[in-house]
Design a protein around this nucleic acid. Sequence first.
DNA 1: AACGCTGTTTTGTAATATTAAACAATAGCT
DNA 2: AGCTATTGTTTAATATTACAAAACAGCGTT
Lengths: 268, 268
Amino acid sequence: MIEDRYRVQSVGRALDILEKIAVAGKGGARLTDLAQEVGITKAAAYGTLLTLKARGIVTDVGEGLGKRYRLGLALVRLGDLALSGTGIADVAMPVLRQLTQTTGITSRVAIWDEDAAVVVGRADAPDAIRLDSALGRRERPHCSAVGKIFLAAMPRSEALELLERIGTPTRTPKTLSTLPALDAALDTVVAKHYAIDDEEDHEGVICIAAGVFGHNGATVGAISVTTLKQLLPNAAVPALAQTLIDHANRISLALGGLPAQTGWRARA
Amino acid sequence: MIEDRYRVQSVGRALDILEKIAVAGKGGARLTDLAQEVGITKAAAYGTLLTLKARGIVTDVGEGLGKRYRLGLALVRLGDLALSGTGIADVAMPVLRQLTQTTGITSRVAIWDEDAAVVVGRADAPDAIRLDSALGRRERPHCSAVGKIFLAAMPRSEALELLERIGTPTRTPKTLSTLPALDAALDTVVAKHYAIDDEEDHEGVICIAAGVFGHNGATVGAISVTTLKQLLPNAAVPALAQTLIDHANRISLALGGLPAQTGWRARA
DNA sequence: AACGCTGTTTTGTAATATTAAACAATAGCT
DNA sequence: AGCTATTGTTTAATATTACAAAACAGCGTT
């Protein structure tokens, strides 16, 4: 068990500061604001920022008054290394780009990590409305297409237990928030080999996802397409889903894995 | 001036640990090794790792004995946010991919940061030998093509002063290590609008780079192509350089900036 | 079966990070 | 212009905090 007493406080505070800088975005964050938001003294935050700056984790822009702190380029390297450790991001990217090029729809890859589907790759459609497709985004399992893929792939009892543990908050009127409803939805995923998020997380936004399978049949990832509901007629969904499955299979193949047909068999 | 006394030690050690995990690569690093390499006790390293793990900065794979620590997915988000803060990475990527597709050569984008050219984007040639093109890599100014672009763009006195301050270590027999030689090389860059690293950093590897200019004529970035020397005849260099300059201009244009012709004028 | 190696936990202590307050310097306002 | 309100930067002193050393438990190997 992880006891709080073993954790080092200063490092936790440093990460708090880093998070605040991250959400501050391109404008950057000011020292006084950071200290207040994190709940420590200016001096403490200052020392921490000095340390982070010396390693390139943060950068400061401006001089003297109104100086702003932004995320540093050292994080670029660490993030890239973390990505390459996933084993699927690099392989999936070319396939994703082709998928987006042929369909004109933004596509993404996600892997499972700590009770969430984490986006580790994306191919943005050039002319599409820029939806929030930030890398590293953690998608809720119960109201995201990629999340449902992972849920459907695990033993059902385990999936329901997980959902009960982390909760199924209502995000929109169409969010499936009850366990029986989600149980049935997962049955559909297993039967059809793809998952849908039909305005269950964001109003007006629809997602379709398909699974990527490794050499032992394990679900190592999921790819998805995301677009506005009004741009995708219901009748067009099956065809798009099949295209998605085909591309997912190409990734599985490149990883030395199994196609979807085989991958889902065990769960049916 | 930054005094060491203001820096927080624990955070520095946490970053040391993170760096060791980063260089350990996909295999991961073990607790005992990390503690020894960083020079602290197992218990201290353990507490730090617990803190980092709770935030997703690191992940542990395996159970009990031989447990390994790897970079966590929280770094993916932070790295992506740091990238989007550069303002050029996103814009340059499509152009880079097209450049690589037409030439078959790996291409990259770099920006200037803290006395080095930092790679913030890459488009790997599919069939090329995988050269070390990791994101976040800091290229030495005096023996890299992108580095010379930035050096040539700044006032010459400042460039030479910088080189003297950070040193010009010899990497290969062809490395330009003397200030007069580098001074002359920068003259060539300004005259020809592109820079070359001809086996000056790695034997057998040649790079060509061109500058990207912002709306006020400032050098906001540099793009480059990297390939094996034996694959690129000397006679083919000028044409490739021109292609590179054309693509760099497209990026400058997309940023609302000036073309190379105008960008270099002030330095001539 | 005993050893050698893990990762985990404990406790005391001293170094450490923190707070609080004072400082310098800028920008805005009357 | 002068005053005020904030900013980022230092300082010095305290007690909290992170650390080292050692003991513990679990697995693999000899």
